[in-house]
Nucleic acid binder design. Sequence first.
DNA 1: GTTGCCATGTAAACTGTTACATGATTTC
DNA 2: GAAATCATGTAACAGTTTACATGGCAAC
Lengths: 186, 186
Amino acid sequence: MNTNNSLLGFALLGLLHQHPMSGYDLRKIFASSAMGSFSDSPGAIYPALARLEVQGLIRGKVENSASLRKRRLFKLAPKGVTAFRAWVKRPVRRDDVIRRLGELMLRFAFTDQSLGDRQAALFLKQFEAELAGYIPSLKQYLDTNVSKMPLSGRLALECGIQEYEARLKWARTSLAFYDRRKRNKL
Amino acid sequence: MNTNNSLLGFALLGLLHQHPMSGYDLRKIFASSAMGSFSDSPGAIYPALARLEVQGLIRGKVENSASLRKRRLFKLAPKGVTAFRAWVKRPVRRDDVIRRLGELMLRFAFTDQSLGDRQAALFLKQFEAELAGYIPSLKQYLDTNVSKMPLSGRLALECGIQEYEARLKWARTSLAFYDRRKRNKL
DNA sequence: GTTGCCATGTAAACTGTTACATGATTTC
DNA sequence: GAAATCATGTAACAGTTTACATGGCAAC
């Protein structure tokens, strides 16, 4: 059985990891934004839930307290917990930093809830290292190409670089948070 | 005839707007990264080019200088120029800022090449206004929810906010560039 | 003469979008 | 009893990914 999932699938697993919910609850979370750029359309969420159920990662049960509307409450199956943790734990690759920043941030958002502070700190260290390696190559690309680029192209590229720099700074201050918390616990 | 296009389609139009190229050239540009997060897979690019051609936005001609390999060189048709400019010119909406930042930056990167400095400056003003309106609502969401969130969740959200703030700052300094250039020209 | 890159494309599977459909239950 | 909202889903379509297929040319 294939246990590959789209990003939406993992987002659903992550939310269900917190506590069981219905498809409608999940839609509301996506609709009220602030949480990534996921669609709240039923045509995305219900099929995704169905796939997760077929894979045995979640299970849905119809709640039927007499007076309530029909509502399927989904919760993580043990297999789902394993798959979710494995996803969160994946090493941070250069490729992720370049093409899947959104996925990385989603994984991080779910990290200490599912795997604890140590894994969160580890993630940040890897993330920092990859960023620190990648940023200079972007800068070099900019330097060698400025002359050939229109102003807006140059500015757009600089915007990308500044974004990565902001994230590097963020990773460092965040790491400091975890270090402080660790020291307080000792 | 429908003139709707995916983001990849517009990226292709933008590159072909600079100068005619083959599908393979386009793939190499995407592969050598630095340019957005587009896939360089032939299964994405060749069908996209075919769609653009069917819509009459581009035209492909086989180059056949005797000793060369078969190579289809694509160039923009007049209709393609119009469609591309209309895309670049679209107003910047709140929704774009939330869910389609990548598309916005791509549009901006192509702006002054296709529509000139004035449109680029206009874009930046709209972008700045939308960001300035959106950021406070994110901050408020953070403030009201900090207590219920795990540390990593909070940090991830803060990372998002910092990203938007970096872009706001970028928009303002970029606008200053266009203002300066305008003054120099007068 | 075989390895590897140039250059094109196709096919199947999957995911997400848009739009529609349905029915129950509050609320006014 | 009409309107809004809760709650679930389906169908048609478009686009992407992954993997495969093909053939010419260049280098060794």
